[in-house]
Computed example of a mutant assay.
Amino acid sequence: MSARVVVLVSGGGSNLEALIDAARVEGYGARIVAVGADRDCGGLELAAAAGIPTFVTRVGDAADRAEWDRSLTARVAAFNPDLVISAGFLKLVGAEFLAEFGGRFLNTHNTLLPAFPGIHGPRDALEYGVKLTGATLFIVDAGIDTGVIVAQVAVPVADDDTVETLTERIKVAERAQLVDHLGRLCRDGWRIEGRRVVLGAG
C-alpha cells in the first residue's frame, strides 16, 4: 500500500515533476494525494495536469502568520498524509504545522548541511571556496535548515563554476536524491535516533 504524500511548492515544480513521474511507477511506495502552494505557480499546473488535487493558502489572505499556519495545517491535514514534502516551498511553517507533522515534514537544501544554511547556499559555498558541496534531504524542525539529516549527495565545485552553473548541477543531484529517498522511506519505513534517521526501521 502506497504512503500518502502532500507536496508543497512555490515555483515551477521541477522536483514535483520528478516525484509525479516516480509515483507512477508500480511499487515506488508513495502516492501524491495533493499539491499545495502559497501562490499561483507552475507547480500547481503540473499537478492539475496530472489529475492531482491542488490548493493555495496565501499568507496575504490571513490576518497574521499564525493564522496562515493554522490554515495551511488544516488544508494539508485534510488529505491525511503520511509525509509532507517541501519541494521549493518558499515559506517557513510555524509551530502548529510542526506540531501536526513533526517528524513527517521533509525539505531539501542545496548545500551539504550544516554548512551554508539559508537561501543563498550555492553562492555562499562558492564564495567560501569549497571544493565540494551538494544537497541535503532533512526533516524540518523549528530552526533554519537544522533538522535531522535523511540523506546527502556530494557535488564537486568546478574552478569555472558560477552561482548559476553550480546551482543547476546541485538541482540535478538534489532531485534524484529526493525521488530515491522518498521511495525508500515510504517502502521501508524509518525511525529517528537522536541526530540520525535509520532507514528500513519503520
Rank of each mutant, 00 (worst) to 15 (best):
A3W: 02
R4E: 09
L8V: 00
V9R: 07
L16M: 13
E17N: 15
I20Q: 15
A23T: 15
V25F: 09
E26G: 12
A30C: 14
I32Q: 14
G36Y: 02
D38R: 00
D40S: 09
G42E: 13
L44R: 08
P53V: 04
V56Q: 04
V59W: 03
A62H: 14
A63R: 15
E67S: 03
D69P: 11
R70G: 02
R75D: 14
V76T: 06
A77V: 07
I85R: 01
I85W: 07
K91S: 13
K91L: 15
G94A: 11
G102A: 01
F105Y: 14
T111E: 02
L113I: 01
P114G: 05
H120G: 09
G121E: 04
R123T: 04
L126I: 02
E127H: 05
Y128H: 03
T133I: 01
T133P: 03
A135E: 03
T136Q: 11
T146E: 11
G147C: 10
Q152W: 08
A158P: 01
T162Q: 05
T165G: 07
E168G: 08
R169L: 13
R169P: 15
K171F: 12
K171M: 11
V172W: 04
V172H: 07
V179H: 05
L182W: 03
G183F: 00
R184C: 02
R187C: 02
D188E: 13
R191M: 02
E193M: 04
V197P: 07
V198M: 10
A201I: 02
G202Q: 01
